[in-house]
Design a protein around this nucleic acid. Structure first.
Lengths: 353, 353
DNA sequence: CTGAAAGCGCTTACAG
DNA sequence: CTGAAAGCGCTTACAG
């Protein structure tokens, strides 16, 4: 009788999941014992635990993560908000975060904010509602620290990609050392013999860009050199922006032997423009990027660049976040810098006099 | 007394979330009423519902999705398993799926399987354990239909990217019409005047490739033409594979005026090889790809190709899945084909005699 | 070593 | 229109 009601239900909806109760009944023990057998609690005999585990496998039992999380008040999932996964930088970061998190026993819920503040706010709400243990916000918008403070004041969070402004902002952050990156770029170009260099696509509103430029100028300055800074007034460092800026530069008769672009995308735009102007890279002009997005390694592109080391960024973000989660520490804030790396491909050549 | 215990707890861990009980106490109603006010149940007076909603906002209340899902036995989250988000094809598909799902009130949990069977199995288990309402598996491996049947026999699922083998496989699927894509490629190349064409990188184990080739040959056949098929024995259609295959072809003195590559990545490899051999595209050789990955639109690349229309694929997959979820229908299987589109860029030229 | 009981934060018949 | 009660599937002190 009861059996028949049961099967009716099963037919109507998808198969009922087998629960801890079913296992308990079959094993002839209490649900507490089953629970303990599964949680690896060592306060029960090896014999029963094995028997129970065996039954679970036979029955295809899977713990209901919802119920478990509800009672443990831990979900072991962390939220990740990126502008768009289709951006290769964030795709790599996402993969790195997911992989590393899984190794540490966490799963990630990935959300695309489309670089929209309202959406970002909603996503924070959504993730909170799903009781994530923490959130990583990957974003280089200068308001990002504020978003974190407003939208998730009580949750462990880390900001990936922008340095949190130097003081006052109570957020954890991970980013590449942009200052060092700028220096690295200058040293490399200098070592190749370049002395007349343009810095392409500086967005003065971007903290990241500011730091890159500062490091770059610092090193050139020691040689008594000053780069020509080409400002980007658009609001993103797109290929298109790099193209427009470079066209203008080439039209005016570019006097430089090398261009350091604020990002790889800008450099890609510069390549396109150079192509149209019959300027050969690197024979006529050396071109150095920043980011090392996947595109840059493509055949026919092979852009030399400064690597952001996305997997290190990803790992550091996960490490910091999980430490906060597991230590319950909310009064300290850590800022981690990753050392950038020079990637030599074929877009820079040395000047032979 | 109780108060002081409470605040101690708050200090120790992160702030306790405000629950439905707190709201009920403040509003002077029962938790049932609060619940009803939030679920939009219309069986309560507009006055109280407004009052309750106001209190919820003031208190920053957010429903606990875990508890709600547990009792509703619906999570409104769908699982998505892709090989790797860093693959631009899957990045676009992921973004499309997340965006469309969110519009329909679903959230997605994205997992990277790294194209590994064991990982795939674990991910199915993980998602099941998290009680997702359904799973989309984006994968072009020919075993994919079997994975679905084995790992998620009782869950709504859809396979994106491969056609489920024509009968027997009880899975839902969405993919581009590869046969039509092959035809489209042939028609285009023919219209440009090409008569001696190579089909580059055919993997005979791939159902997708088989269909592309069949459509391609069908149209050429009508003109009495047969393409030279260059087999790819490697297990993936990488840029590297395309490069190696093309090098060999060019070394042997390529007699063709056009190459149709089985995928864009292969075409990219062909570009690289052509560059090295001093073969100009499209002046000396026309090159047509398949997929339309983002790379193909990059400056200096501008590959003509057959578009897989990822956003349509994504939407169709979500639509099918949510319909199954909401209808509880488990005995029908739908296979949706998306029409491919020709993208003309600059890698194909017409032959002038 | 094992079980009964309480409870995580909700929702939803069932009464009124 | 509203409340008391049961229950979703688990875990974890508390007893024994």
């Amino acid at each position: 009788m009861e059996r028949s009601v049961r099967s009716r239900k099963e037919a109507a909806s998808h198969m009922r999941h087998v629960t801890i109760k079913d296992i308990a009944r079959i094993a002839g023990v209490s649900t507490s014992t089953v629970s303990r057998a599964l949680s690896g609690s060592k306060e029960l005999s090896e014999a029963t635990r094995e028997r129970i585990v065996k039954i679970c496998n036979e029955q295809g039992y899977r713990v209901n993560a919802l119920a478990r999380s509800l009672i443990r008040s831990r979900t072991n999932v962390i939220g990740l908000i990126v502008p768009e996964v289709t951006n290769p930088f964030y795709a790599e970061v996402s993969l790195g975060i997911e992989t590393h998190a899984r190794q540490l026993g966490y799963n990630v819920m990935l959300c695309n904010s489309q670089q929209d503040t309202k959406t970002t706010e909603e996503l924070f709400g959504f993730l909170t509602s799903h009781q994530v243990d923490g959130i990583i916000l990957a974003n280089s918008h200068s308001d990002a620290p504020r978003w974190i403070q407003q939208f998730a004041p009580h949750l462990p969070t880390v900001l990936l990609g922008t340095p949190a402004s130097l003081s006052g902002d109570e957020v954890n952050s991970v980013c590449v050392d942009n200052l060092a990156g700028g220096r690295l770029a200058a040293e490399y170009l200098l070592s190749l013999g370049h002395r007349s260099i343009a810095y392409l696509g500086h967005r003065s509103g971007s903290l990241t860009h500011q730091l890159r430029l500062r490091g770059f100028m610092e090193v050139l300055g020691k040689e008594g050199l000053t780069p020509t800074v080409i400002e980007n007034t658009a609001d993103s460092s797109s290929i298109g922006a790099g193209y427009e800026l470079s066209r203008k530069l080439f039209n005016e008769g570019c006097p430089h032997t090398a261009i350091f672009a604020a990002t790889d995308s800008l450099a890609l735009g510069a390549m396109q423009a150079a192509d149209e102007f019959g300027i050969s890279i690197p024979d006529d002009l050396s071109l150095l990027g920043f980011d090392n997005i996947i595109y840059s390694s493509l055949p026919k592109i092979t852009l030399s660049t400064i690597d952001q080391r996305k997997s290190l960024l990803a790992e550091a973000a996960v490490d910091i976040l999980t430490q906060i989660i597991e230590s319950d520490e909310r009064d300290e804030f850590t800022h981690r810098m990753i050392r950038p790396a020079l990637i030599r491909r074929s877009s820079c050549a040395s000047i032979v006099d």
